[in-house]
């Protein structure tokens, strides 16, 4: 992969890689609170079957995962553990913040023990609002993330510039640049 190292990858090859990456995402799930059950319903139930979107839930460890779904309240006691496990994930890695608590603190916005938003610890790609969001909302978040991955410049990510859109194929996402997406 010398091409990627130099930060120059032919566009057709990037497109091909991106398509492959977006349809084989291994999700490491952080079941923290109520949202974990809705995430379980989205990932583990026959009604919402997430595998049809090319997402593979339940890897054994964060070291095998591409995507982490932070679902539920992040407390100050839990935050170091979240950061540590996030750092164990191999690049390229993506984060979906699920539910009001992980987005901004939610109903516990004035609590002394709750971290007001997981984005204070780790970078977030997609926010899914709701308390808890329905499984369909999480699926929408995953679809939005897949669109973003398809349009991503791999060279830029390799150079450490974060999520940079490859071209203005999707006008909206190009405009947003590396700004997180909000589902719903």
């Amino acid at each position: 992969m010398g091409l990627v190292d130099r930060g120059r990858l032919p566009k057709p090859l990037t497109t091909l890689f991106n398509m492959g990456r977006s349809y084989s995402m291994w999700v490491y799930q952080w079941g923290l609170a109520c949202c974990a059950i809705e995430m379980g319903a989205a990932f583990g139930s026959p009604r919402y079957d997430v595998m049809r979107l090319g997402v593979i839930p339940l890897p054994a460890s964060p070291r095998q995962a591409d995507l982490v779904v932070i679902s539920g309240t992040v407390t100050d006691k839990m935050a170091p553990a979240i950061k540590r496990l996030y750092e164990q994930m191999p690049e390229p890695k993506y984060v979906i913040s699920m539910g009001s608590c992980a987005n901004c603190g939610g109903p516990y916005w004035d609590s002394y023990s709750v971290t007001k938003g997981v984005d204070q610890i780790i970078p977030v790609d997609v926010y899914v609002p709701g308390c808890p969001p329905r499984p369909e909302a999480l699926l929408e978040g995953i679809v939005l993330l897949q669109q973003r991955i398809k349009n991503e410049d791999m060279g830029a990510r390799w150079r450490g510039e974060g999520t940079v859109p490859m071209s203005a194929v999707d006008g909206e996402s190009a405009e947003r640049g590396g700004v997180p997406v909000v589902a719903g």
Partner: peptide, 14 residues
């Protein structure tokens, strides 16, 4: 325990 402590008893006071 305490990794999910969200401070309900204190929050109910406000």
């Amino acid at each position: 325990a305490g990794y999910m402590h969200r401070g309900y008893e204190k929050l109910t006071e406000v």
